[in-house]
Design a protein around this nucleic acid. Structure first.
Lengths: 317, 317
DNA sequence: GTATTTTTTGTTAACGGTAACAAAGTGATT
DNA sequence: AATCACTTTGTTACCGTTAACAAAAAATAC
């Protein structure tokens, strides 16, 4: 593997000139520059990122800190990772996946944190010395990337209303985190806007629990009903419930989910859901973080993605 | 962040002595060793892995090359990654996720490759210069980690037989890769062993296609039937088919899947499946690869995991 | 008690880059 | 032609670590 010195020798210039051609080409005369380019091409030169990292006091490693039990959201994270990976590779960074349990001393240039709960801000996030981007909205002033959760829930609620249903139940996850509060707010405001009574139900994010809850409700009900769920997992549970009771989807029961990652397509019928552009969001997390690192930790602000309503057969024919 | 020199100065020894305490402690007298340990502790010394990497001509990066369309197997890979990550973190390695499209020149110490198809061996894998561990059985002599696919299919087939069913259909994926051939063989041998007629059906790995196929079959059938599927995704499709036709699971229709990652638990009823210990397997991939790197590329052989039959309500009450 | 071996410690020079400074070349100004 | 300013190139030292060798100290032999 050719080094800077090899390139320099072949082009009959000093190492420094080669280094400059790479980093500050405008400082080198066109003739030498061309010589160096030729030499680089001939030797198939690729910079040694480890050596660069050493001089720059960098590690070229960023960590993805997943504070949530991973099991509960797997397909979601794989997409996030895919997005992050694309951006990191382009900029010669690599990744370490860490969880709450692995409290290694943090040899890295920056972190993307996700799945944080209220307590984590003080005990973990505020103590980090490196630049951080959070994946998930927060009100503590940290840079973050998220989808517009409130709007997402608004458009689904409006969608089922537009299908002519006014008996609309909300199924959410029983945690008091900003993303869930926003989803609840999106539902609640839309209902109140139409003078309808919000009916909010919070539970563990499990398809079986949602199924159990929905069966109880459906057994007692005769009119048309819609369940707007704060996750596809809950949505799938409700689909199962309706099917077990032999109720027609979407004629008797309408169901919507949230996330649009994988599970929505597994359901039968496929689930109407709010798709988050997770891969894109992963890319953005990485991009913001690397920029932040380059800019010595300067805040990069927040980035909120527009949610997209994907209409499928749990709400329309 | 304290460096070797800082530790050395505080302990009043040379840098080299500190380095030796870390790498070859037996070469240092007990007194100095203790001095150095004290100094390290006092300064909270952590080696700079970048500098180590530079002297050792390493990158401390390994790549996970996913040759398969990721979308089709997401939850699966997240588990694999989790396993890999644990091992890498412990040994101060980091990760790059790459796919077929990203053909970066391979600045890394080794690769874990997965989702490879027949063509890939010649065009990609054989050209890699770094140590490689494959995730998935192969007959080309590469080191690999996999579950015993044949045995997995054997035990499921035997399990449904033990439930008193002898009309057993196999639903597999229409690719001629070793893992699938092994699963087919496991089914076929077990059937022939009992003098039963194997019925093999291959299709795209999609729950909706499996549902479509199974509905066709189920409409024409009256006796009890079992579907042993080569993936949970196919299994879920068959569950949906049985439910749409109002057939009783497991009394009229028995269904089994394969993988035991995430999807099996989403199904309703939960799917009897063959669980692969994916996290464990990921760990092993990483461990073998890092050992291989340390041993200058020496073959590490293969590692085949015992599959575990998880019996649930698609085969028994 | 000196020569010889062995153990322990220190010195130097890498690894592959880059920043900071020094030197040489170029051209304009007087 | 001498001075100055500017551009272009090269030299040196350093980032934090380790291997290879050299030197010093300790242990052993005779």
């Amino acid at each position: 593997m050719a080094t800077l010195s090899d390139v320099a020798r072949r082009a009959m210039v000093s190492k420094m000139t080669v280094s400059r051609v790479i980093n500050h080409p405008e400082q080198v005369s066109p003739e030498l520059r061309q010589l160096v380019y030729n030499s680089m091409k001939a030797l198939n030169y690729v910079p040694n990122y480890v050596a660069q990292a050493l001089v720059h006091h960098r590690t070229q490693v960023i960590k993805l800190l997943i504070l949530e039990e991973m099991d509960t959201t797997e397909p979601y994270y794989m997409n996030l990772l895919a997005g992050i990976a694309v951006e990191l590779d382009q900029r010669h960074y690599s990744l370490q996946l860490v969880t709450r349990s692995s409290h290694t001393i943090c040899r890295c240039d920056g972190l993307i944190v996700t799945g944080m709960r209220e307590d984590d801000y003080e005990s973990i996030i505020s103590r980090l010395e490196q630049p951080v981007i959070l994946f998930g909205e927060n009100m503590k002033g940290y840079d973050y990337v998220d989808v517009d959760n409130k709007k997402g829930m608004k458009i689904t609620t409006e969608h089922v209303m537009a299908q002519g249903c006014s008996n609309i139940l909300f199924y959410g996850i029983d945690i008091e985190e900003p993303f869930m509060l926003s989803r609840i707010a999106g539902y609640e405001e839309t209902m109140k806007g139409k003078k309808l009574l919000p009916q909010i139900n919070l539970m563990k994010n499990s398809s079986h629990i949602a199924q159990f809850e929905a069966e109880k409700v459906l057994k007692k009900i005769s009119e048309r009903v819609a369940f707007v769920c704060a996750s596809d997992r809950l949505g799938i549970g409700v689909v199962h419930a309706a099917q077990r009771l032999g109720m027609a989807i979407p004629d008797q029961v309408m169901i919507t989910g949230f996330d649009g990652v994988f599970l929505d397509r597994i359901a039968q019928p496929k689930l109407t859901t709010v798709r988050q552009p997770i891969v894109e969001m992963g890319k953005t997390c990485a991009k913001l973080l690397l920029d932040k690192i380059d800019q010595d930790g300067r805040s990069q602000g927040i980035c909120v993605y527009k949610p997209e309503l994907v209409i499928r057969n749990t709400t329309v024919h």
